[in-house]
Structure formats: structure tokens, C-alpha cells
Amino acid sequence: MYAFEIERPSTIADAVNALKGEDAQALGGGQTLIPTLKQRLAMPSKLVSLSGIGEMKGVCLGDAGEVCIGGATTHATVAREAAAHYPALAALASHIGDPAVRNRGTIGGSLANNDPSACYPAAALGSGATIITNNREIAADDYFQGMFTTALEEGEVITEVRFPVPEKANYQKFVQPASRFALVGVFVAKYAGGVRVAVTGASEEGVFRWTEAEEALSGNFDGGAVDGLSVPSDGMISDLHGTPEYRAHLVKVMTKRAVAASG
């Protein structure tokens, strides 16, 4: 990696201030950024570590019963502490990476990076979560704007993510054999107002909602409801691990399995 300065603020305000410097970059758990630095693919002048900010850590319940997770909360903490409130979310967190990744990687870091194959974007979009930053609240539907692209502005920090708790939900991940990121991951959540289906890993545009399935499942929350639907392979990712056709096929298979497993 190239040489850089590092700051370790203990408050959100100090972090936001530190990020105003030229070429400053926020560092969450570092599970993407550190390998990127090691490859010399990024050259920030300064890293601002968010891992020492107490007010950005932990899981709690909001006034409306929503699960509120601090932006610097690790996957392992979510797996442990959200389990009683939102089991599908906790289960998703418990299968990200390996124990080392889960003990370093954070929800804010994952959502800010918006890797097209990451798990958390599916949970956030599938739950209609709200992304809270240091200066605003962003609905998940407005937040994800394509592969590695989000509504975050320069220097903006995800301080918290709020998940409304569904009646039923499940995440099915079909892993890419090498990286074990999602080759296709589908998060299905049934709310009183309807069903949401969010797909990660499949599309060149990053995480997306499969609206046809949402409509079908909102009418009849049964895997069979999507039998007549088909997912177009246009715009699906093509790589060593799967063709667009294969990914499109898996979207449907994983959706059905998620519905079946959501109990």
C-alpha cells in the first residue's frame, strides 16, 4: 500500500470533520478497503477510522419496533444481537465471509461500498430500510444507485441503519464458489403492506427489487406464486462462475426457497 495518515475520531462530528480533508477516506472494518490499498488500487492521503466511535455501534429497537443498527456495528454483533428481533437479518449477517470478516466488517462499510455481490444491500433493500447519515435519512429505494454507487455524498457517513421488522423473512444465498460472496442472493420480506424481494449478486446494476415477484407474492405468499414468472437474463452478470442465464434462473430458484424457508 501507499503511505497514508490515519485518524481515529471518537465522535461522529470529529469523523465528519476529519473527512473534509482532501483525498480523505472513511475506513469501516476495512474488509474491502484494506485489500484495495494493499493492491495499490487506491491512494487516499488520510484514512478516518470509524471503528472507535461508540455512538455508531450496537443494535437496539426504535420507537416503532424497528431494528436500529449503528453504522460501525460488526456483522458478528448483528448476528448475535439482532437474532431475537429480526432473525432473517441476523442469519444473513452470520453467513457473511468468515469469522475474521464478521468480526471486522461493518454494516455501514458494506452498504457504503455497495458491492454488487454483497449480502447487506439485499437485506436493506428487501426490508425497505432507512439509511441514516450524519446529515439526513435516505430510503433504501433511493440509496442504491448501481454497482458500487450510492446516494452518499463525499464525506457523508452512515451512522445508523433502521430496519422495519417484517412478519416473515428469509435470505437465500447461492455462493460463488471462490469468494463465497453471493452468486445470487435473494432477500424476501413479507410486511403487512406487501412483500419485498431484493436480489443481490445477479445484476450488473447491483442490488435490485424483483417487482413481478413482489406483486405475485403479495397476492399469494407461496413459492408457487412465482412459477409463471421468468427473470430476463439481460443485464445479468457474466463471469467465470455463471452465465447471465444461470443467474437469472437462480433468482427464481432462490426466491422460491426464501419464501419456503421464511416459515
Binding site: P177, A178, S179, D239, L240, H241
Partner: peptide, 23 residues
């Protein structure tokens, strides 16, 4: 079942890390 060292038509190694080479 897993391992595949693969080049593209330009001779670029496209399975050059554990992100793509499945051990």
C-alpha cells in the same frame, strides 16, 4: 469441482486471486 485457472483471449489471467480461483 472447484479449481480453474483461466485466461481470457488477450492472455490476461482472470482467476488471479482467491476471489475467483476456488480452493
Amino acid at each position: 469441482l472447484l479449481e480453474n485457472c483461466s485466461y481470457d483471449e488477450n492472455g490476461q489471467l482472470i482467476s488471479a486471486s482467491y476471489m475467483d480461483y476456488a480452493m
